[in-house]
Nucleic acid binder design. Structure first.
Lengths: 158, 158
DNA sequence: CCTTGACCTCAAGTTGACTTGAACTGGCAG
DNA sequence: CTGCCAGTTCAAGTCAACTTGAGGTCAAGG
């Protein structure tokens, strides 16, 4: 199996063809030639895509990830960068934990209104002061959510 | 202190005036009148803004937050929703922890190239398979975000 | 040979949460 | 009375990471 076409790369990696084209345009991956119009990729592109997925999951932007590859295309990953990201992740985790505990408490709290629950108000103050901080949740990509059927919006506990 | 103007609301809440206008347009807050052109807010808007900040920090979208207020403007927060969000948060935290541990290891790993580090490759597979999952980090807005001073969360796991 | 269908390119659209710019207004200090 | 300056409106821009649409091409199958 020397060189796979874009459809196969998409199938094997789980990344959409449009995304592969987009990544190529961004310089994150490179196609190796064409068969007709079709891009051909070296199978090694799959490793590369895994690396990109990893980077994304770790919270790196595509631009940051692009910088992790030497001009020759080999990964050039700075250990200090990893350590820094790990630390950043740790801070995030701490905040999310605080948030989580607070939410759990608020959900279980017997006070008639949340505004009367001391824990809730403490959370409120923390959020207002920015101590809990920023976060943005990403909507799930349309693709592999066939499982839940017709439900377009999230099915949260009613 | 009866009614504060937008500048004061911005100052007291740490939320920009443009954001306050945006929130008003979205129906998240309401101004109570005008002095000249200037919006006047009830000081209670500050609680409301804290609530909004809290919701955002917990990962709710503005639209979701908007739905947390009854038509009369009083918060109507569904406890099951909070519990669901807490659970979601917990899953996220678990993933981030895995990521964090992997990054730490990779950062410290003595293998000459990351591709030769078993831990790193395990991470890679996890990311490629989607087991680690999606996340999007937000760039901090220009403003300060000073005091992350008093921490109230223990970092569990790690 | 001709249709078909997957791929191609390039531009534009999407989403969420805001920010920015241009043109305007009006209370208040001087 | 007159500027100033901080407010106002509305439209459009920004950012990231893609996706979608329109119109085109080409290898292969019938």
């Amino acid at each position: 199996m020397r060189d796979i076409d874009i459809a196969e790369a998409a199938r094997l990696s789980g990344v959409r063809a449009s995304t592969l084209r987009f990544y190529e345009e961004k310089g994150l991956i490179a196609s190796h030639g064409r068969r007709g119009l079709r891009r051909l990729f070296d199978p090694a592109v799959l490793d590369r895509l895994a690396l990109i997925a990893l980077g994304r999951a770790a919270g790196f932007s595509l631009d940051e990830i692009a910088r992790m590859f030497a001009p020759d295309g080999r990964p050039r990953i700075d250990r200090r960068m990893l350590a820094a990201k790990a630390e950043e992740l740790e801070r995030t985790i701490r905040k999310l934990n605080a948030m989580h505990d607070g939410l759990r408490h608020a959900a279980a709290c017997p006070a008639p209104s949340h505004m009367e629950c001391p824990t809730f108000r403490r959370l409120l103050r923390a959020a207002a002061s920015g101590a809990i901080g920023e976060r943005k949740t990403r909507r799930p990509p349309r693709k592999s959510f066939a499982a839940t059927g017709r439900e377009q919006g999230r099915a949260r506990g009613s």
